[in-house]
Design a binder for these strands. Structure first.
Length: 366
DNA sequence: AAACCGTGGGG
DNA sequence: TCCCCAAGGTT
């Protein structure tokens, strides 16, 4: 299993046909000292990072933009200032606070990780990649990122930004995801012994602001003279990626059921899977065939009225089209779920798709 | 190992 | 409108 170095490197006795690491390190760190972004979770120069804040930000930032994360990060840190506070919180409260950020398994794992750090490590995050990797929700990227950023360990995180920067620096033309181990090995040859955390963040900042996916700003890049893809005129074509599978459309019915006092029926979803553990409006199954007997899955036997229009939403691997049915009940004692007044929906922690359903129903006068 | 798992912004 | 993408992990 030779995935430590590319073949051509071994053939050259360990030398890479890429830029000199010392030049990349010096150029990128100098650029970072001038252009570093001020982010809520980022320690200022000379400050000691808080591993809890670093971990929290890294989990939130998985597949999620900086702009989306900012308000959630602030809210979580204000509400649960230390990892033990988060560990003591009920999971439902964590899920409610996470609502709208997506990938809800992250919130479940966040809570489990807080408990593990509190119980297994006495409330302090471990500083080695291996121990970090053993915690829920922490994979290869996040373990390396925390080790480097929070503990200044010479680790080599490889996220989407660093994949792109590395593929271009070395002009790697094979497609992702197959080429990822090679990119990891190439990236590791660049990691400096001094300031590895800053170096990792510098690569991510460069990828986010200069070495962009579509139209890289090579004229502004501190590594332009060192970049093999730039020299070959390939920068805007790398990294190559395998084609993605098309998304099917699933259809279903969502039920907006209200009581005489105006409260609406909500439920909690099963603990795992899509939107696992989150609050929902009751609905039929979502299938590519569409609902045959919508009434059969309704939460109550009442006269249902289908609202005009559709609620559309796109998940990671399918499109969703929902019809909304509205109904009213007089007797609700045998109905499974819980009732929330309309002015309490905002605090109920609904995922975005459920917010869309509620908005559609309220606008239509449900 | 390939499938599953959210959301919002930008081109 | 549609596709791409974002500090990926789990099963």
């Amino acid at each position: 299993m030779d995935r430590s170095l590319p073949k051509e490197a071994a053939a050259e006795g360990g030398r890479f046909s890429g830029p000199a690491p010392e030049a990349v390190q010096a150029g990128l760190l100098a650029w970072y000292d001038r252009h570093r972004r001020r982010l809520p979770w980022r320690a200022l120069p000379g400050e000691t990072p808080d591993p809890y804040a670093v971990w929290l930000s890294e989990i939130m930032l998985q597949q999620t933009t900086v702009a989306a994360v900012k308000p959630y990060f602030e809210a979580f840190l204000a509400r649960w200032p230390r990892v033990a506070d988060l560990a003591d919180a009920p999971l439902e409260e964590v899920l409610t606070a996470w609502a709208g950020l997506g990938y809800y398994a992250r919130a479940r794992n966040l809570h489990a990780c807080a408990k593990a750090v509190t119980q297994r490590h006495g409330g302090r995050f471990p500083d080695s990649e291996t121990e970090l990797r053993d915690l829920p929700g922490i994979g290869p990227y996040t373990a390396a990122a925390i080790a480097a950023i929070a503990f200044d360990r010479p680790a080599t995180p490889l996220d989407g930004n660093i994949e792109r920067v590395t593929a271009r620096l070395f002009a790697v033309t094979e497609p992702l995801p197959g080429v990822k181990p090679k990119l990891q090995a190439l990236a590791a040859t660049l990691t400096p012994a001094a300031r590895p955390g800053d170096f990792a963040q510098a690569k991510m900042d460069l990828g986010a602001t200069v070495c962009l996916p579509r139209t890289p700003k090579c004229l502004l890049c501190p590594l332009e003279a060192l970049c093999s893809a730039r020299a070959a005129g390939l920068a805007d074509q790398l990294p190559r990626k395998a084609p993605k599978a098309p998304k099917p459309t699933r259809r279903g019915v969502a039920f907006w059921l209200t009581r005489p006092d105006g409260a609406v029926l909500l439920r909690r979803r099963p603990p795992k899977g899509l939107l696992g553990g989150m609050t929902e409006l009751p609905s039929s199954d979502w299938t590519t065939e569409g609902p045959k007997e919508g009434a059969a899955t309704a939460p109550a036997v009442v006269p249902w009225r289908a609202l005009p229009g559709l609620v559309r939403h796109t998940f990671t691997h399918f499109h969703l089209e929902l019809t909304v049915w509205v109904g009213r009940v007089q007797d609700w004692q045998d109905i499974d779920g819980f009732w929330v007044p309309l002015d309490g929906l905002g605090a109920a922690g609904l995922p975005s798709v459920m917010q869309k359903i509620a908005k559609h129903a309220i606008k239509a006068g449900g």
